[in-house]
Structure formats: structure tokens, C-alpha cells
Design a protein around this nucleic acid. Sequence first.
DNA 1: AAAAATATGATTGTATACAATGATACAGGA
DNA 2: TCCTGTATCATTGTATACAATCATATTTTT
Lengths: 224, 224
Amino acid sequence: MSDYNLKEEVTDKYSLRGRVFHKIREDILNGKYKENDELREAAIGEELGVSRTPVREAFRQLELEGLIRIVPNKGAYVTGITSKDVADIYMIRSLLEGLCAKWATERISHEQLEEMEENVYLSEFHAEKGHTQQIAVLDNRFHEILYEACDSKMLEHLLKDFHQYVYRVRKQTLAQDSRGNASNHEHREIMEAIKAHEGERAAELAKLHMLKAYENIQQKGLLK
Amino acid sequence: MSDYNLKEEVTDKYSLRGRVFHKIREDILNGKYKENDELREAAIGEELGVSRTPVREAFRQLELEGLIRIVPNKGAYVTGITSKDVADIYMIRSLLEGLCAKWATERISHEQLEEMEENVYLSEFHAEKGHTQQIAVLDNRFHEILYEACDSKMLEHLLKDFHQYVYRVRKQTLAQDSRGNASNHEHREIMEAIKAHEGERAAELAKLHMLKAYENIQQKGLLK
DNA sequence: AAAAATATGATTGTATACAATGATACAGGA
DNA sequence: TCCTGTATCATTGTATACAATCATATTTTT
């Protein structure tokens, strides 16, 4: 946040430093490194076949993203997400996704709208077949399309960061399915509101979509 | 934001790396390094009396904060803020400051409320005397108190980042005064709504406060 | 003279060396 | 036994050395 955090991802995605950064990040989000685990520069460097230098630089970035906490002269520790953090993020996201949907209504390109429609159809198809894995991927993509369609680098970056940040929690929910149908229906409604150029309705629906997603997480008792 | 960008500032504020980071950041926000300036690792390291290593690490963080843009194998360049960026940020901030004010209403401590009241009184005093410099400082502080009072590390960090990010633009507005009285009055209204435990009203007022601040920037033609 | 190829210098990227710091284990004394 | 001081070791912090890359200038070729 810090920062609105507006890093340039595209340019460095394939540089060595970029790869180290993305790899560690992925390992944290996927749960390989767990809450309060200590990350040692040398060990990770060795594992990735690089020296400590790029690892250290990646650590600094991960700290700013809030995934690790660096205690000077001591070490780097994976930060935990408290249930309050998750609650806060979903509340913040509900506002921002609403704004995003409103802007997207005005600014979405033809191609983006088509991909969104396709996404909704495909997701409904996979829901019938019970393909939870594909539904999860499509759910992620639906929101990404929305973020890109709002045509605001600031908002897009912010929402993508939050989206990733709660991934550790969401992973569990998505695996449990059950909300898949409801979620798909909400996606369809948002898409149709955007298609009909009803910005305010799209905003309201996107906002509600987030609040319901949070309720689901909460009810399932996925949070401590 | 990225941010959410949730760096740990306290722990490293006085480490060497931390100092380098904060110094460069300050130099950018204060305008010493201007839009599209190229920052050379060696030159800055020499100026600060350190080697390139801590400078590089600071660069990585500044990139994530969106203050500079790193082109691999080429260099680091100060990012410009477009007028659209500013517009987007103020729109986003209006939503988030609203949420912040609502939460603050429920969670503000006695000490924080007292400091806020004092802040409002002092600001009105300095406004009468025409002390623009003090008004600017108090204005910054008013919002910081609000951010801290909402008792959400996530939201606090996000808002502080945005606050800093638009500092480059706001500096000019604040120097021009003129909105000082209106702004002070809005601060007072927000404070009183919080004091009266009227969360929704505080939210609405805080939201409006942001939108008016943006209108002011826009009208003054401070943006390209 | 124009274009292409090459050489030169400056700058970033990475690895490594050394210094500083913190944690742990052990020894000595109360 | 418990506390304290010291030694040792692991780890991070910083500086430096070298490699890779890019921009520019120079030379060569047509």
C-alpha cells in the first residue's frame, strides 16, 4: 500500500531479480513458507541458484508488499494475516471494487467486455461439471479483467495487490466450492450491468459481491 | 499499495538502509529530483556516503512505492504524476477517508480525540494570523490522526501512502492558502461528528472534504 | 558521404569478501 | 541451582570486484 504501490511489474518480470521476487512471493502465497517462518538469505539464494544480493533486494520489496517483516540485523519473517486484516481488506475492497466497476462501465473496451462475457459463460459451464480448479482460475481472471477495464493504473494496481494479498485465505474458500454458483450469478449480474452501461448498478453489485464473499469466508470459520 | 504496501517503518527508520530510503524519498517529494530525472546509484551513494548496495535496495522499495521507475539495465527514473493519477487518487481517497472516519468514530481513543480537537483549534488560530506554513503542518497532522484513529493498520498504511504520494501536488495548493478557512471548517465538522459518535455523518463529511480539496486543486489549474 | 561495424566508456546486475550484530552454549562464581 | 560473563558461531549489513548491458563515438566499408 504503501503505498499505492505502483511498481512496474512488466519490465522486470523476466529479469533475474524479478524472478527471485516473484518466486519467493509465490512460495509465501502458496503456503510453502508459513506464518512466522524465518527466511534466510543464503538458504533461499542457494535454492534459487543465485547469490544473496538479488535475494536481499527481493526481500526489501516483499517487505513493502507486507508479505514479510524484516527485523534489522535479525531476519526476515513471513507476516501472518489476522482475521481483522482480512475483514478490513474486504471492506476496503468492497468500496474499491465498486468504484472500479463504475469506471469500467464507462471505459471498458469491446475486447475486454467480450472476454468478460466468455469468462461468465465458461465459469457457469465448469460449475455444472464441478470443475473447482477451473472455477477458481476463472474467478481470479474475472476480477482481473474488471481491474484492467477501469483504466486506472492506480486503482488497478491497488486492487491487484489486495487480490493477491488475500489469496492465502481465499485459496481455502475456493477449494470448498459451495459458493461457486452464487458467485457466478453475481459475476453475471455485474457483467450485464456493465454491458447495459448502468454504472451505479454495477458498482452496487460489485460492492455486494465482495461483502458476500467475505460473509462466506467468515461463516465457514476459515478465520481464527 | 501495492500495496498495500504494508512495510514496517518503525523498525528500520534509523538503520542505514532506512535512512537512505527515507532521504531519497524526501528528495523526490520535495522536488529536488524532478519528473523523469535519472537517478544514478553511484552518485547518490557518494552523496550519502554509502556504497551502491544500500542505494540499490532503497531503489527497489521506491519503485514499489511508485516514486521511481526502474528500467532493467538502464536506470532509475523519477515517475511523474499525471493529472489523471491525481484525479484517481482523490476519488479513491474520498471513499477510503470516508471509511476511515466511520471506523475512527467507533474506535478513536480519548487522547486522539483531544489531539484532534486541539489541532482544529490551533489551525483556526493560525488561519486568522495567516500562518500558512503552520496550517499546512496541522492539515497533514489532522489527517494522520484520523488515519491512526481508525485502528486499521491496512487502511492507515494505505491512506498514509496516498497522502504522501500527492504531497508533491498538494504542496503548491497549501502554499496558496485561500482554501484554508473552508478546509478548517470541514475539519471541525468531521471532528464534531466523530465526537458526537455519528459515524455515517463523519464518513460523508470526510468524503466531501476530499472531493472539495480536489476541486480546489483542479480549479487552481495546478494540474497540466 | 552514408551506412555499418567496431570500440570505448558509463552504468547497472551479480557475486563475493569482510564487518557488525545477535543468538547460543558454556564456564565460572554466587 | 541460578545468574552472569565470555566465547563461538550463524546471519545480516555494507563495500567492493567483476560481468553484462547499453549508449555513444569512432572507424571502416561501400
